[in-house]
């Protein structure tokens, strides 16, 4: 590249020199001295800015690749693990809240809460969601208050310094199924059921993973042995997990008459858990619309103002009239 450019420059310089006649020294040293047009191109190629930007581009590309794929490019790696140990990639499902403008389906959140309460809550806590969070999302204030009052909470101390039991209020958080993690482990064969408040954010694949896991239980394939009390699920990293399949057709009875199939319940509870992870989701997308409209308008205005201000400078013409030589 470099040599080719230099040769071309030398050739041009040589042809110029031939037209000029006797000045052959220009052609002779064209490759080692600064010419006119080829010289500016060469000085561009050899400039520190070019060197710095080329280095930056190379380093940046490698860094980007490493960040994206986790390994350096063109460097081989040997893995001792099998792909199945990482768990299958979850299937991408067309969630009704996938689009950049789409809110959650709140009827689905309500059904999902029912599934969580009747099925998941037997083992999994949801300790970052309070009863008040359901108000205006999936339940009315009266419904949420009535549900909270069915649960007894320990409060206190009172005037005598004793703790006492009282019915729940809207401000109380969802009651955990076990008093502490040790009790949860003891009740589930040593495996701790994770808290579900942020589970959608906490797992690769998010909603798709949760749905795939809930509906993905199968018998272990030939050759795969799992321990007693474990269950096989190809979407779970490692394949074997303590939680068994819990969703079966007709397990819950929806109040709105939706048929409670396994996939319907999995979809609803996943939508509910996605809401629990991102309660700000709907409002965030609405602010997104506003931000895009306002910022793109401001951008267009700034382009217009720039052109408006620069147009006299860009279109002006400077005329040089050489002074008339009036003799020596």
């Amino acid at each position: 590249m470099f040599a080719a450019a230099k040769n071309a420059g030398a050739l041009r310089a040589a042809s110029r020199a031939m037209k000029a006649g006797p000045r052959t020294t220009t052609a002779r040293f064209a490759s080692s001295s600064a010419g006119s047009s080829s010289g500016s191109f060469e000085s561009f190629l050899n400039s520190r800015l070019t060197l710095a930007s080329a280095s930056l581009a190379a380093v940046g590309t490698v860094a980007w690749y490493t960040h994206l794929y986790g390994t350096l490019p063109f460097v081989g790696e040997a893995h001792a693990s099998a792909a199945s140990d990482e768990g299958m990639h979850p299937i991408a499902y067309p969630w009704s809240h996938n689009g950049v403008l789409d809110t959650f389906d709140h009827a689905s959140i309500r059904r999902g809460y029912q599934v969580y309460r009747e099925v998941c809550a037997a083992c999994h806590s949801l300790n970052r969601i309070a009863w008040r969070n359901l108000v205006g999302v999936s339940h009315t204030a009266d419904e949420a208050r009535a549900m909270a009052e069915e649960v007894e909470y320990t409060d206190g101390p009172n005037d005598q310094g004793e703790m006492f039991e009282r019915p729940g209020k809207l401000a109380d958080y969802m009651p955990p199924p076990y008093p502490n993690d040790e009790a949860a482990r003891a009740g589930n064969g040593g495996a701790l059921p994770p808290d579900l408040s942020l589970i959608v954010k906490a797992r690769h694949g998010a909603s798709d993973y949760i749905f795939s896991l809930l509906t993905g239980y199968i018998d272990p394939p030939a050759g795969v042995e799992i321990r007693e009390g474990m269950n096989y699920n190809p979407f779970f990293p490692g394949g074997a997990l303590s939680m068994g399949r819990v969703l079966f057709d007709g397990l819950v009875e929806y109040e709105d008459g939706t048929p409670a199939t396994t996939s319907q319940m999995a979809k609803d509870v996943t939508t509910f858990l996605h809401w629990a992870s991102e309660p700000e989701h709907d409002e965030r997308k609405k602010y997104g619309i506003k931000a895009v409209i306002i910022l793109s308008t401001l951008f267009c205005i700034s382009i217009y103002v720039k052109r408006f201000k620069w147009i006299p400078i860009k279109t002006r013409k400077l005329v040089y009239e050489p002074p008339v030589n009036k003799g020596h």
């Binding site: 309500r110 999936s138 997308k285």
Partner: peptide, 24 residues
Amino acid sequence: AVTKFHDSWNKGKQWKDIRDKYAT
């Protein structure tokens, strides 16, 4: 204007659309 567009885009999905079924 934005709220109107947002509500029409998400017609039937938001809580205010299904609230009437549950509120006494």
